[in-house]
């Protein structure tokens, strides 16, 4: 475990050199938040109106949290890195290294995500307060719950994106699969809470990555409940197990073919 913590630390130190670039990256996020603020202000003709269980302020805070989470954990970099390692043959150099390639990629991603998380959270909270003038009702327990589920959400997202990156073992360029995954999260998870979708689809969405990656932490932020926290937490642990298992399986299968092809 110490070696992975060292990988995490070295990636974190390296990312700290680009703090300004990360902060500048928030501009894109801010533009989207601004558009959604306008859109929801238009849709909620009266700010105290409740649509599908959400007030306008809750809706906008929900989007701010999901956008922050997506900004931190979208993981395009990790997907491209794994895909390029496979396409370029660099993956062969990792075979004799004393680490697990999946865990190496995961901890390296978490190192950069950590810095991003701090910057995006501070900026996101400032923007939210600027737009709405108040925070949702939070207490120590709900803050801890949101932080914990957000960390797990980042890990799940990294594992799922790594899995897509590992698809390059089968199809040369796995980027198109990343587009689909990102749109699933963005449209179904980031823009609307699950309650906005028809009741027939809602149980399916609760089983999908959308629930553990975006909806769970954001819902806890705008409307905390202990029962909801336990459900989200357990679902996230299950997803981490499945995600890691799938990545390991695909990696092992892919590496076998790589050996046959001569690397």
């Amino acid at each position: 475990m110490r070696k992975y913590l060292f990988i995490f630390k070295s990636e974190l130190m390296s990312t700290l050199q680009y703090v300004f670039n990360i902060a500048a990256g928030f501009i894109g996020c801010f533009i989207l938040l601004f558009i959604f603020l306008n859109l929801w202000q238009y849709i909620y003709s009266n700010p105290s109106e409740i649509i599908n269980g959400y007030t306008m302020n809750q809706m906008i805070w929900y989007i701010i949290i999901t956008e922050i989470l997506w900004g931190i954990s979208s993981g395009k970099k990790i997907c491209v890195k794994i895909s390029n390692d496979i396409k370029g043959g660099n993956i062969a150099y990792n075979l004799n290294k004393p680490y697990n390639y999946i865990l190496y990629s995961l901890f390296s991603h978490l190192g950069s995500a950590f810095v991003k998380a701090i910057i995006y959270t501070i900026l996101g909270m400032i923007v939210g307060f600027m737009f709405l003038g108040s925070f949702p009702n939070l207490n120590i327990l709900s803050i801890i719950a949101v932080i914990l589920t957000s960390v797990l959400s980042t890990i799940i997202s990294a594992l799922l994106v790594s899995f897509i990156g590992l698809f390059s073992f089968i199809i040369e360029d796995s980027t198109p699969f990343y587009w689909l995954y990102s749109k699933l999260i963005l449209i179904v998870g980031t823009i609307f809470p699950i309650e906005y979708f028809p009741s027939i689809i809602q149980p399916i969405l609760k089983l999908s990555p959308v629930y553990v990656v975006c909806y769970g932490p954001a819902k806890l932020f705008v409307d905390f409940s202990l029962n909801n926290f336990i459900t989200v937490f357990i679902s996230q642990i299950i997803y981490i197990g499945i995600g890691f298992g799938l990545c390991t399986l695909l990696y092992k299968k892919g590496v076998k073919n790589l050996n046959v092809n001569g690397g």
């Binding site: 199809i171 040369e172 360029d173 980027t175 198109p176 587009w179 689909l180 749109k183 699933l184 449209i187």
Partner: peptide
């Protein structure tokens, strides 16, 4: 690479359609 070429186009259409 024809497969990558076609996948890129088709998935971009799907991506927008989402």
């Amino acid at each position: 690479n024809k497969t990558t070429f076609i996948t890129n186009i088709l998935f971009m259409i799907l991506n927008n359609a989402s």
